[in-house]
Design a protein around this nucleic acid. Structure first.
Lengths: 255, 255
DNA sequence: GCCGGGTGTTCCGGCTGGCGGAACGGTAGT
DNA sequence: ACTACCGTTCCGCCAGCCGGAACACCCGGC
């Protein structure tokens, strides 16, 4: 019926349900789900109960709203654990951290956000291993690095969706300013975050490419407190090295 | 066909595919997926391409194997952000951390593992917020607390699946010993982790209950280095408080 | 109190789209 | 070259998804 062939429309509708649960919206009623996805309440009910049975969705006890279930955490865990990319880049990042005594973050791009998949910390005594996330692109060094080096068409599409919400008073909220910064990042090979996400925190980030498609898949970044380094020092001391590291990883690790 | 009615069998089969990707196994070929789930290669192909289109799955560039995609991270992020439970318990845990100067972890139970959904850290200057996970139950205070207070039938089922893999030389690998510890935990109201997950790390954990179903849904736990507290001190100083905190949270927060 | 609008749930016939066997093209190992 | 596996496509058949309608339920309001 619709454009693409060879896809399971049932599953696609099922995934469309999961798509509803963004960070903004808390929970949905069955009727809401049916209306938003564009299916009947009957179908929505079948899908939702299937999800609930597997803990991908859960009903809130008091409000009765459907929310994402704990099972989604297990998926993310498995994603990190089994990712060949994460496994492959670990030695690089660990070596970099050991030699320069810095903490390097690796983030992957998906849709309109970057997701931190590996962080090398000095004090790694935790039982639980942690991974992290961010909700947008425009206020992070990793996010801007990814945006700067993606295809113009893809960038334009993302730019049209970005709201450029302010996290601090230095967050870029003007599209023209952001475009200019991205152009500068393309020149020098890395992007900056000058206290745009959190006061007192600066960072630089360099893009990771897929050696198969040539597209941007993520970024490596390095953050610092303004108390230890100024942005000038950060760039002078580490920018060259970070870009080099990103190239090395891009050349070796798959995806 | 099969027992339960009112579920979408297409979606169920789709989720069965995701279930394959445990922490152990790295990736699968299409034929493997078809064989393990018990469907034809054709169907598996339709499902998998649908997943790939949405970044829930991705093909590894060099090996050609299918793996979990970045999108799963976004789901987990949304789960944490929109969870009413996580929102509700934040003030309790923050207050506890502020008053006692300790780091309290909150974990949720799903299937055979607990997932850390909130951690109160003193130095919370990070851009990325982190959440974490663990792969089993038997070597964690939170995991043992959850096991100790679940229904006997559910416990027996989980026990039959647990492999009791050793993380340290103090990890409990004998079912009888574990059963005895769980019985003790039921007596005192909390469970212990005596360097069973990591050398030099001890912890205590108390169960969280659903006020609707009365079942265990997770646990709060508190860990410490053996350098700062002995297990005896940990129990004497914090066990009572931790059990109290768990009760307070259980009484107020939904799910 | 009753009633209206909201919820989630179940039943059922129509027909869509998931189903798997078989055949195709590509690549890697022998 | 030959084999063996990979992923992909084509196609006819019928399982099962679909949605309208009717159901039981709960809550707020005239």
């Amino acid at each position: 019926m619709s454009g693409k062939a060879n896809i399971s429309e049932s599953l696609a509708k099922g995934l469309a349900i999961l798509d509803l649960f963004g960070v903004e919206d808390a929970g949905f009623t069955l009727s809401e789900i049916a209306a938003r996805v564009g299916i009947s309440k009957t179908s929505a009910h079948r899908y939702v109960t299937t999800y609930c049975e597997q803990d991908y969705l859960a009903r809130d006890a008091r409000s009765g709203l459907y929310r994402l279930g704990v099972r989604t955490l297990a998926l993310a865990q498995s994603m990190i654990e089994t990712s060949e990319l994460v496994r492959g880049l670990r030695p690089f990042v660990d070596e970099a951290a050991a030699r320069h005594g810095i903490h390097i973050d690796v983030a992957l791009l998906s849709r309109d956000a970057v997701y931190l998949v590996y962080r090398r910390d000095s004090a790694d005594t935790r039982v639980f291993r942690s991974f992290s996330y961010a909700s947008s692109l425009h206020y992070l060094a990793a996010g801007k690095a990814a945006m700067a080096f993606m295809e113009p068409r893809a960038l334009a599409e993302i730019m049209s969706r970005l709201t450029l919400a302010a996290k601090t008073d230095r967050t870029i909220t003007d599209k023209a300013v952001l475009e200019a910064e991205l152009a500068e990042a393309r020149e020098v090979g890395y992007a900056k975050n000058n206290e745009e996400s959190l006061p007192g925190l600066i960072a630089i980030g360099a893009p990771l490419f897929s050696l198969r498609t040539g597209k941007v898949v993520g970024a490596v970044s390095f953050d610092s407190s303004t108390a230890t380094y100024s942005m000038q020092e950060l760039e002078r001391l580490f920018a060259g090295y970070l870009v080099e590291l990103a190239k090395k990883i891009s050349a070796v690790v798959s995806l």
